[in-house]
Structure formats: C-alpha cells, structure tokens
Amino acid sequence: MASTSATGGTTSTEYIKHHLQNLTFGYHPENGLSIAHGAQEASDMGFWAIHLDSMFWSITLGLFFIWLFKKAADRVTAGVPGGLQNFVEMIVEFVDTNVRDTFHGKSEVVAPLGLTVFVWIFLMNLMDLVPVDFIPRAAEESGIPYMKIVPTTDINVTLGMSISVFLLMIYFSVKVKGGMGFLKELTLQPFSSGNVLVQALLVPVNLLLEGISLLAKPVSLGLRLFGNMYAGELIFILIALLPFYAQWALSVPWAIFHILVITLQAFIFMMLTIVYMSMAHEHH
C-alpha cells in the first residue's frame, strides 16, 4: 500500500509516523545533546527538549504577523486607506467589535491579545493547507530528518498559548478582585449558606467544583485547537497515501473545508480568550 508520495521504500505506517514526528532537540541519556530519531528517542529526552520545527514556524509566522501589521500601523492614516491598511483595519475592526461585544471592562491588553491570538493562530493553522509533503521533503533533502510545519498540531504550542491565557486570567482576577475576592469566588459559590458552620462544610465542595472548572478552561482551550488541527493534518497525511492521480479528489474538498476549520478555530480561540478575560474582570 506504499504510495508514490511516501518516502521511498517506507511503509504507510512509517510514512505517517514520520510526518507526525517533530524535530526534537534535547539531551538524550545515551546520545547526549542531539536531534531525536523516532518517537522513542524524543520521549526519552523528557521535558527538557524542544521542538525546533514548531518553534521555528510559530516564531516565523508570529514575526510575519508583527511585521505586516507594524508596516500597516506605521503608515496608518485616518484618510483614505490603502490596500494593506484596509486589510489590517478590517481584521482590527473585526477583533475590536468582538471585544466590545463581550468584554465590558477597561483593559489595554485584551483587544491586542485577541488580535494576536486570532491572526497568529490563523497563520499557524494556514500552514495546514501547504501540501503535506512539500516542505518536509525539501527539509529532508537538506539534511533535516523531521519537519512538522503546522505548529498548532503540536500540543506544546496550543497548551503554551492556553496556559499563557490562563495565567493572564489569574493575574487579572487577582488584580481586579483582589486576592481575597478571587479566593471568595472560588470557595463561596456555587453553594452558599447563611449558616457559618454549613458554609464551612460547603467550602471544600465549592473549591473542588470551581477549581476544576477553572483548570478545565486552559486545558480545553489548548486541546480543542490541537485536536482539530491534528485531526485535519492527519487526514491530509492519509490522503497523501493515495496514488498521486487520485489525491486531488479528496485533498481539494478537504482543503476547502479546512479553510473554514482553520478560520473557525482561530476565531474560537480568540473568542474564548476574550470571554475568559471578561470573566476574570467581572464580579460574579
């Protein structure tokens, strides 16, 4: 079943595994500081390893975002906007509208945060539309064994962002409501009682419920994006196993559908980020 698009002489399983392997650099107990060959070596490196491909692509795309928007921001005018300004303004306005609709506090961070999240994640997701073999094959030719070009299919990347959002939530909660206010929010609801004794009994229950719901937010935020993108990427890889003349019949519809998915996922991540920021700013 090995197809023409799979690397020469490998089975489909190996092909898929190869495509799902990040370029991991770290300290291996036996090989020392090196690039992992295979999933086993990568997992042996433990926490103190880094996915060079994910970092490279996410930072490159982040820089592209910053460069493009900075360029527009430098030449921005309140008069008749040019093409780039128009495009940038459209996105800024879109984010701004969503922030205004959802977030009623006053913060200089939330709107730019939403913009960064939306555009950056959209760009990272967009890499999914690059045919799965183009860049990995080119990298292989130049001696780089693994190359996953869609950073959002790396759980580290999505969790890295969602945990950052989580930390901002904690920060704003404490800043707006104070340490005690935040603690009260975690312990005095959803169950409360006028009786001090009963209330004391309810505190652990509340803490458990609120704690779980609080922790579930960053986890679900990160996993949702990761799951969607990983599944999409996997389907592209599976389609790439077909004979080359048949691939278009599946890859084209899936890519068109995926345009919707990548935009939607970027939008959902942005909206939830704004909603969480809003929750952190509001008293319940």
Binding site: T24, G26, M55, N156
Partner: peptide
C-alpha cells in the same frame, strides 16, 4: 511529549502580544 516547546511558545506569545 510535553516539553520546553510549551515554555518557548508561551514566551514568544508574551513577546508578540506585548509588541502588538
């Protein structure tokens, strides 16, 4: 595997958001 990439991503995220 969860690894340093997570931290790296969080750091670059913070930088990009700040810049933005």
């Amino acid at each position: 595997n969860l690894n340093l990439t997570l931290v790296g991503q969080a750091i670059s995220f913070a930088i990009f958001v700040t810049f933005c």
